[in-house]
Design a protein around this nucleic acid. Structure first.
Lengths: 215, 215
DNA sequence: CGGTAAACTGACGGCATGACAGGACAAGTT
DNA sequence: AACTTGTCCTGTCATGCCGTCAGTTTACCG
């Protein structure tokens, strides 16, 4: 599928080359989680990796390009999020459990990768197609499965036919992403940390099934 | 309340000074909506305003500082969002209408100011307290009122006591903000534009009242 | 008209960017 | 071991933006 790793000027990268490339990506990743995106400079990343800016530009066209690589790596890992939803029953008590675990899994994934994810979010919001595509790819892992679940419930007559399954699924996932990204903002305005997850799960359950979960 | 407008070196700004200051802010605002945040340079803003970079630095410490000013302007305007919720009844048909209008008003506010809002979002997500505070200030206009509405319903026994009103309100508003910011991402993945608002309104209604709106 | 404070600018050292050519290195060949 | 080959890295350079200062122009007031 993906061809070999290549440098900007078209050479194929060997073992050593791939190692430095990866090191640069790692350092960029750390940089992103410690400094504002706007202040991340090529020279700092290169210094941290014990190399020179020129080396950086051999493997990536610019900072954005490198971020997209990081995002791609993460998107692959994010494909596993599908399992949080696929094949789950949303009826009765197992429905409540499904909501709980979806919220939990999603939040921890987001938190683990928050630095890159917020850059992707920004790029996508700015209308950059490359970022939008990756963002969709990551979220589709969840929204897709969730859409299926809702459609299934509609098929059984448990959910109104006139709701749009993809719209609901997308909105709920966006909510989870937003809350994960601004978690600090919540605790700062009168929401107890412990209250967050159960109430999110409640909202997810309500959205998917249209009903409150059983006690 | 707010003292006079001051330059970085402490002078008070006169008529002419305030005019150029405002012009710089306007140009910055336009710049933000046409270029990626990372590429917005002081020199471009200054050029667009027909002045020099040095002038920019007389009124703002850096680009971030100027963005915070823009955000402050917008926060004042955003205070009007309270009226989308305050004093509304969430019972019966008027509940459905309240949800509709909240979604509508919120989305159009967000869309009108999306350039600055996504920068604020980024700053807040990166943990910058100044951005977090402004973001909270804007959102509080809605979450606060919404929290009150939910608490009121809880008082009347129409909503379970064990849900956290602020957590629900915050999550719903975050959902609205997220959807507004990534609206294009939705339509790009199988959600019809026209389906979005009604389904969001449904989710809001469900979240606030715990019940589906009447037909 | 003269004085004072405000408003602006030119110019400068410093740093990031992005390109190139050439040197260092690993691995295999003779 | 010396040589060869292709990969990998860096020194260096031109360019352009950043952020600051000293100094000039403009507006206001007695």
């Amino acid at each position: 599928m993906t061809g070999q790793v290549r440098t900007v000027d078209g050479r194929v990268a060997g073992r050593r080359g791939q190692a430095t490339r990866q090191k640069l990506l790692d350092c960029l990743s750390e940089m992103l989680s410690t400094s504002p995106y706007r202040d991340v400079k090529v020279i700092d990343v290169a210094r941290m990796a014990g190399t020179s800016p020129a080396t950086f530009y051999q493997y990536f066209p610019d900072v954005e390009g490198a971020v997209l690589e990081l995002a791609d790596e993460m998107a692959k890992e994010g494909a596993g999020l599908t399992e949080l939803v696929a094949g789950r029953s949303w009826v009765g008590k197992s429905g409540a459990a499904a909501a709980d675990e979806l919220v939990d899994g999603f939040l921890s994934f987001w938190r683990k990768n928050d630095a890159i994810l917020r850059v992707i979010d920004l790029g996508a919001a700015e209308g950059d197609k490359r970022f939008s595509r990756i963002r969709t790819k990551i979220l589709t892992a969840v929204t897709g499965s969730l859409t299926e679940s809702i459609k299934e419930l509609q098929g059984k007559g448990r959910v109104d036919k006139d709701v749009s399954a993809p719209a609901i699924a997308g909105s709920l996932v966006t909510m989870l992403a937003g809350v994960a990204a601004h978690q600090k903002g919540f605790t700062g305005s009168g929401v107890k940390q412990a209250d967050l997850k159960p109430n999110l799960a409640l909202l997810v359950h309500l959205g998917v099934t249209g009903k409150k979960p059983p006690k």
